[in-house]
Design a binder for these strands. Structure first.
Lengths: 346, 346
DNA sequence: TTGAAAGCGCTAACAA
DNA sequence: TTGTTAGCGCTTTCAA
């Protein structure tokens, strides 16, 4: 049923070889032959079998991306935007994207192994790096092409794109301190996550630099979901001495925290300041709009993908390590009640 | 470098065929031979080349999913959850997932064509069906296996999973009417989208059934983003006679509308009721929590995937058409100020 | 300018 | 129980 090179060869009387060359724009085919062949291909509705090409070329023109989900009801707007970035870039570069979903932990590495061993993809994108990341150790040890969004603490040298989360949180912290906050709470992320670790550091460092005490009671860990943000904020507001500001390691938890603050009858941005990290589109539309640290998520997706393609193609990498400077976006959730404009502080 | 069947054959002295059979658990291999072969395979670190298997088997064990993005900064939590559903189910069934991102419109169909013609995938998942959907016409005409999330108006018979959006919105509308609302506005979605059309119908039908006027001035169209929800609500609140309730075709727009209502100094759920559709996780954590119509997004992803796999495997489809009954989730954004509990109305 | 032949790595029908 | 042979659809030497 499907039309193959052989069908065209038979139809035109040329050999499969010549047909292949004509169709692939080789220059050792006479114009007339080429025309005949192309017309016939057109007429019969020929389209190359991609799998056969893959086998022959010994590459799949496919990139792998394993999304580290966190439970069944996984819904992080971060990933749609990131996916759009890598998806569009991949397709612009002529690559397909093979996506798998797996929760972090046991079994996750098996997916990586399958892709690598089976030569299922030409390269991999790794996100949410851990401080000691077994995925990265594995890929490094297999000499498999990959690019990470995020660094690690100990896996040696590999190409990555990262944002300076420590600096981002430092700016947000300083912003709060400058507005007179002293009791500032922090909703941390899993400390195995590199960015969770870095962001917490940004907070503790800045507190210390300003000679403010770092109170362990004011640091609560969440799992990046709104729900956990709510819960964390509840614990913080139940303290004998409540904080005047709550910083969260990501926007989703910040949004959850805002809900709790409001449920306690406080006004966010006036009684209690709340800040996030990521600047997902919702941050701008929450009530009140959320002060946060912007990451250009879509752009990061594009960049990571771009670097990976360069790596696969063997071209020299312009930049093996990219570190982006995050931007503090001040909105009403942290502004003094008077101000209401959105101010961007570079 | 990579170990192939031939390497094992050479190492053990058996033929490639025997090696293949031993490794694939055929029963016409002597136990001793099998053991030798398996041990050698293990020792050499053999793993089958997946591409070669695909070519030989004439199938890719891969499902295609083309995400219809809406602009670069695409970030709809709906899709992460949906993706988690199909991703997990696909992997449970032994399928990989090839994901592509493309905005609806010109060029989109090319991606479908490439996947179909190149035999890149064994089947496709189609979402956000349009009333006249060229993707579906194409797949139908190519006799290519696919399952849609959503129906169409005219494309004939094809397998789909859908929720009864009309009934869902009808319930929400009735809920508002029962609470005394009369001037109810509706933020519609693109009317080419089947669900956009259906949801609007649910609203107009219910208004008429209750002998309430359907005022065109109270119907505004948005593009499903929060931003457009904001804008739409702004237009509605600028009307000489403002509505007492605003229904949106999805949660994202409802969240945007809430922001506008609040910016106008109204209290959501008291002065103006707001409702959404989808029940994305954020709906529960907004301020106030959003009354909405629940779709089991993750579950729908699983189901669509399951049906597609059945279809590909040629098994008889238990259910070619699945229509889910949506559930109204009443929260504070529509409840009379007194009530504050979450009530689920089946 | 063209074609024959080999081969990518695997599976399967058929014979021995 | 095992091997021979063929072939999936394509690309790419190499020789004519």
């Amino acid at each position: 049923m499907p039309v193959t090179l052989r069908d065209i060869a038979q139809e035109t009387g040329y050999s499969v070889t010549t047909v292949s060359r004509a169709l692939n724009d080789y220059d050792d085919v006479s114009p007339k032959t080429r025309r005949t062949i192309c017309e016939t291909a057109e007429r019969l509705g020929y389209h190359p079998n991609i799998t056969a090409q893959h086998l022959q070329r010994q590459r799949t023109d496919t990139l792998g991306f394993i999304i580290p989900t966190t439970g069944p009801r996984f819904s992080d707007p971060f990933f749609t935007e990131f996916l759009a970035g890598i998806g569009n870039e991949a397709s612009a570069q002529g690559y397909d994207l093979l996506v798998s979903t797996h929760s972090a932990g046991p079994g996750e590495l098996d997916v990586y192994r399958r892709f690598v061993r089976g030569k299922r993809v030409d390269g991999l994108l790794v996100v949410r790096t851990r401080r000691h990341d077994s995925r990265i150790s594995y890929l490094l040890e297999q000499h498999f092409p990959f690019v990470a969004f995020g660094r690690t603490e100990c896996n040696g040298n590999f190409p990555f794109v990262d944002e300076d989360g420590r600096a981002g949180i430092a700016r947000a912290t300083q912003h709060l301190i400058d507005h007179g906050h002293r009791r500032i709470a922090f909703i941390a992320a899993d400390q195995d996550l590199m960015f969770g670790h870095e962001r917490l550091r940004g907070y503790t460092d800045t507190m210390r630099e300003n000679n403010l005490p770092v109170d362990d009671g004011l640091i609560v860990e969440g799992d990046l979901s709104q729900r956990s943000g709510r819960r964390a904020a509840r614990r913080l507001l139940d303290l004998p001495e409540t904080p005047t500001a709550i910083m969260a390691s990501n926007d989703l938890m910040a949004l959850g925290a805002m809900a709790t603050v409001q449920a306690h009858g406080f006004e966010v941005g006036k009684d209690v300041a709340v800040t996030g990290f990521d600047d997902i589109p919702l941050a701008e539309h929450s009530h009140p709009p959320l002060t946060t640290v912007r990451q250009p998520i879509y752009r990061i997706g594009e960049m990571v993908c771009q670097v990976l393609v360069d790596l696969i193609r063997g071209g020299p990498l312009k930049r093996r390590h990219v570190i982006l400077e995050p931007t503090l976006i001040v909105r009403q959730s942290s502004a003094p009640a008077a101000s209401s404009a959105t101010i961007s502080v570079g």
